[in-house]
Design a protein around this nucleic acid. Structure first.
Lengths: 242, 242
DNA sequence: ATCTCATCTTTACGATGTAAAGATAGGAGG
DNA sequence: CCTCCTATCTTTACATCGTAAAGATGAGAT
């Protein structure tokens, strides 16, 4: 199915019947108060495209996420996205911004739900990994793609907020006030270490590169358990200075 | 320049003059002992393609690395790589294998050059990051691309060797013998932590996501210095269990 | 009622991956 | 020496993709 592109894109979902007769009758299309119905000509195509993109991403993976596939999914012509996002980079960037917002919300809500200090310390990294596992496509868009335009305000802001939350969490854990302006080497190292560790763990996990380790661990050890062990035993075994 | 593809690929480098006359004279082409000269019909096209791919990757980045571009660079028809690698995945996988071998060699030589225990402890992660900074394209192929086929023996072996080296280094540092078969949770956590940290640091660094932190550190703090600080101060500040 | 313009569609072009058929030599066998 | 075989490389073809440009279309302003 879908041999020729013209065929595929001509047979799209039920939109206007393409003006079957040339009479300008226009019979009751757009029933005077349609809002989240099928967006006809106006409507919120931009939003619809972003949602379609997310759907395509979850369904077909990162390689299936193309401008034309998104347009197909939304039931519009293949050039429609260009008008709203300018570029494939534009669409990916806006979608990544959506992802960062989801990501931040997930971590924040997980932190809020924590009660004990230990839970509070583990909540954020666990939510980090959990989000990535639940939405590997989104995580890939956010952290794997090279084609992102951080000069777009929405993406810049969402990503920045993600970093700020992390930095604050580290600061709170060290019971220091992280001034937004400057950092000591140790403060910077603490932030970069935490971020690197969780990010690296997530990428290795998503890429299946930890399967080898997980398989050698005691029967039934889950990735989450391994993450806990990583976070709870902070001694890396580095030798002291001679 | 290079408007039509036919034009582009017809005008390729000096290979055989396409049999100007139909006489089977065959005048002194391939001077009887050409080895690494221009590979004519036989020769080592496979190797030449891999080298061409590496060149294209360094020059045009990951997005410029296409089957056709590699063929162009090697001076052969666009379908020639298919015969040797079957697929774009095949080419990328073999190239990633080359990268893993370079990567392993760099880390090994850096470890050998270390003298003091402290140097020895820092040599491997520093070489890790240094390789990635020196060859970001290769590192991208190895760790960013989704399209790798680890069932290929060359790639599987090279990547596995990389992991084994890491595991052994961690084991040596903890003064334990890592048996190839099973791991305790703490052993696995130590390995996964070290790998995650260095890998995550590298990815964040290559993606420019550490610029923010580096900019806030004392004037002129380099990424390598930050990495040292990360590795040398192993206390993450996690709270003890209540 | 007409005009204007943002929005969407058509059409077109170059590039890419991949498959399939055709050419070409290097070597085996007579 | 000649012929045939086969791996290797080239041509040709096709579907898909991103992107640009021109044409339709309808909503709101005048």
């Amino acid at each position: 199915m879908g041999k020729s592109e013209t065929r595929t894109e001509t047979a799209r979902v039920a939109r206007t019947p393409k003006r079957a007769s040339a009479t300008p009758s226009r019979p009751a299309r757009r029933p005077a108060s349609a809002k989240a119905e099928t967006p006809y000509h106006h409507g919120a195509l931009r939003e619809a495209l972003l949602q379609a993109a997310e759907r395509v991403l979850e369904r077909d993976g990162l390689s299936g996420l193309t401008l034309r596939a998104v347009a197909r999914e939304a039931g519009v012509s293949h050039a429609a996205p260009t008008h709203h996002f300018g570029d494939l980079t534009g669409l990916l960037s806006e979608l990544a911004a959506v992802g960062f917002r989801q990501f931040n919300a997930a971590m924040a809500s997980s932190c809020d739900a924590a009660t004990t200090p230990l839970e509070r310390a583990l909540a954020r990294p666990k939510a980090y990994v959990a989000y990535a596992q639940a939405h590997p496509g989104m995580y890939g868009i956010m952290f794997r793609t090279e084609r992102l335009d951080y000069s777009r305000p929405s993406l810049h802001e969402a990503a920045e907020s993600s970093f700020a939350g992390l930095a604050n969490a580290i600061g709170a854990m060290r019971q220091e006030q992280i001034s937004g302006d400057t950092l000591t080497l140790n403060q910077g190292a603490a932030i970069a270490r935490a971020w690197s560790m969780v990010h690296g763990f997530t990428m290795l996990l998503l890429d299946g590169r930890l399967e080898d380790i997980l398989g050698r661990l005691p029967e039934g050890t889950t990735a989450e358990r391994l993450l806990e062990a990583i976070l709870m035993a902070p001694v890396t075994g580095k030798l002291p200075a001679p």
